[in-house]
Nucleic acid binder design. Structure first.
Lengths: 398, 398
DNA sequence: AATCGATAGTTTACAAAGTGAGTAAAAAAA
DNA sequence: TTTTTTTACTCACTTTGTAAACTATCGATT
């Protein structure tokens, strides 16, 4: 069980994938330079390049400057040859986008769940169709789905998703039948982590952690250059690490989980309760006194305005995240921690406390050189990450 | 940087390694069965098998029962064709053994460090030579060294080893020059983890954690089937995760680290201090009242005899380890946690509390199915693991 | 302007490795 | 005894990368 074997095609896939990778990483670049970098012969690069160009993945873009001989023909990733549909399924709805191999978003659409019907499939499908309608010229190669909860990636089924009251939900078969395109499903944080590797902060990085902070908190781990999913697809579920002695009972049944102190919901809860206990906050003005109208947007506005109540709550939230991050650093010694997800809009106001807690609680040898940064893909990390699931599968065995 | 390319030899290495792996896992086995399992043609299996036999790695062992045709020729791992030297360098000394591909120990030797001289190289070398002298007929292919502290495995140098007051110590070059054999160096816990994969509890396992509990506490991580070392070779350093509010200052400068509550030293310390505060313990009898003579052996005897004082201290120690294990489980969702190292001799008396703490503090989805077990290689895990570093390198790219 | 050296990319002969078909050996079944 | 099945080897074929020769440019020099 689980033995690898190789054949001639495997070599080709490996080399072709690496050639693509070099173009992606440092393109525009000439065939000759690729050969030098990969220590392949120019013949090998040329023949694989011909296929990549044929498939619409790479294109020639002109000539570079000569260094004393024939001008090099530069190639770059094709911005329009093929593209990929990414779907982010979170607790409250679906978001879908069509993304080019350069990370450009050709079209994007959103569809909140109609919880009353409980027909999630329909909402997902309608979102996919609406975005495909917006970009009809696009040659969509596949559909990648990033899904909250636990996803069995070998069978491509959602084993358990809290917000959709269903277990072992086979989204892949359903969407493939409806859309006639290959479908790849993975956990949302894993997809985001992969997206960050292709288009964000983690380019060419082999060991890093993506923190998805939003309606819950989870993480995607990339270790030794591969997404790490654990033995039952539950790796990176840091939301249920104990970080607080607050006595708050988590949905998982335990007490003091990170999930009880570091999500959109808890920040809103803490702001409301602070105001209830008489603390003055700028937020009250933004919602005209209606505390039930407080949301992440109003909190963000107050934070921008420098409201001390909100800033202190965000600091505290950051410290809790930092505690969990310190465990991750001690165990995994990653190169980078990337903060993303819907809560990352408040990221600027939490980064300092995350960093301070994470570094002060972890061992120097492990935290040495670790970069803690905000995602540059921000709220698009979900759909872009999901689309990269399909891109990744251009070279499945490489 | 870090691109993979493939050539024809790569295919061969992959297939040859997998053929070897099947023989290792389920041998004795026939060529035909291997072909079925690996979905290779019998021609491919035969030609690779001929090389493996030629190299003394595998041997024919007779014929099996026919199921209606020609009797299959069974092959198995050669117990004597080639063997590997493993060296475990811990804080107080060196241990070396010559190990066959079947995990049999042909010779073993020990050499405490002569700290006054500070000439560690000499002690390591003399231990290696003494064990080679014991098994002169053995065809030793390589030397694997498991070393405490942080090891840069690409350069094979010990970046930082607390007990040897030296940084960036190039053991590989030194030993290769003296012994004229390839030398592979890795962190001791990583080596043990690998050893457990070849000969111990983690056979055919892809995701597991080896806990090395001894004079310090560290871990070796095997993730996606590979040893995971982190970005600066410091992954798995769980000794410096904060698990206690005891105010004890760790050597690393922080407070409450696992290393301050779960090593040989802390167990001895706690027993001594309990006796000082008037608790009656069986240990006192074993050392005839001389508390400075208390060591792991006397504590083990007392534990065997059911001494409540010692058992309570071991329980407490186990709970602290369990807390750290719970973080590991939540982050990595491993298949197995293996407890080894010199303290694992006391393992029976800690397993329950480790398990209880680990499971009660981790999320169900992550801990589901995780097996927490004692190493079967026990105190030999170090040298056997180190020897497997060499075995692993029979098929370096596979 | 003509020539020469250097660089880029393509073509061709070759080698390595797996595949697939065919074959011999050997044993069980009819 | 004959037939069938299973094992393992041989050999022609295909794929893929390599090495070297070849073509196409380009810049510099004469």
């Amino acid at each position: 069980m689980g033995y690898n074997t190789g054949d001639k095609q495997l070599i080709k896939e490996i080399n072709k994938a690496s050639i693509f990778q070099v173009v992606h990483d440092i393109g525009p670049v000439s065939r000759a330079d690729i050969a030098k970098i990969l220590k392949l012969t120019s013949a090998t690069v040329s023949s694989n390049m011909a296929e990549l160009i044929d498939e619409g993945i790479v294109k020639e873009i002109g000539t570079g400057v000569s260094s004393g001989g024939r001008k090099p023909v530069l190639v770059t990733i094709s911005d329009s040859g093929v593209c990929f549909l990414g779907v982010d399924i979170h607790k409250d709805g679906v978001e879908a986008a069509i993304v080019s191999l350069t990370g450009r978003i050709l079209a994007i659409a959103e569809q909140p769940f109609q919880h009353e019907t409980g027909n999630f499939e329909h909402d997902v499908l309608s979102c996919i169709r609406s975005v495909r309608g917006m970009a009809q010229g696009a040659k969509v190669k596949s559909i990648g789905i990033g899904m909250h909860g636990i996803v069995d990636t070998t069978k491509s089924i959602s084993v358990f998703a809290p917000a959709m009251a269903r277990r072992n939900f086979d989204l892949k078969t359903f969407i493939e039948r409806e859309e006639h395109l290959p479908v790849y499903v993975d956990n949302d944080a894993n997809a985001m982590a992969l997206g960050e590797n292709w288009f964000g902060q983690a380019k060419q990085m082999k060991n890093y952690v993506f923190l998805n902070v939003g309606r819950g908190i989870g993480s995607g781990l990339v270790l030794n250059g591969e997404v790490f999913r654990g033995s039952r697809y539950a790796a990176g579920e840091i939301g249920h690490i104990r970080v607080a002695d607050n006595g708050i009972r988590c949905v998982c049944g335990k007490y003091g989980c990170l999930d009880t102190v570091a999500t959109e919901y808890t920040v809103i809860r803490d702001v409301v309760s602070a105001i209830h206990t008489g603390v003055k906050s700028d937020v009250t003005n933004h919602v005209a006194g209606d505390l039930s109208a407080i949301n992440i947007d109003t909190i963000l506005e107050a934070a921008c305005a420098g409201d001390p109540c909100v800033l202190e709550i965000l600091n505290k939230t950051g410290r809790f995240i930092g505690v969990a991050v310190s465990y991750v650093i001690n165990i995994l010694n990653p190169e980078m921690i990337i903060l993303g997800g819907s809560m990352s809009r408040l990221g600027e106001y939490m980064m300092d406390s995350i960093q301070e807690a994470a570094l002060s609680l972890s061992m120097k040898e492990c935290s040495d050189g670790v970069k803690i940064v905000l995602s540059t893909l921000r709220e698009k990390a979900g759909v872009i990450g999901a689309a990269t699931l399909g891109m990744r599968n251009l070279f499945p065995r490489a």
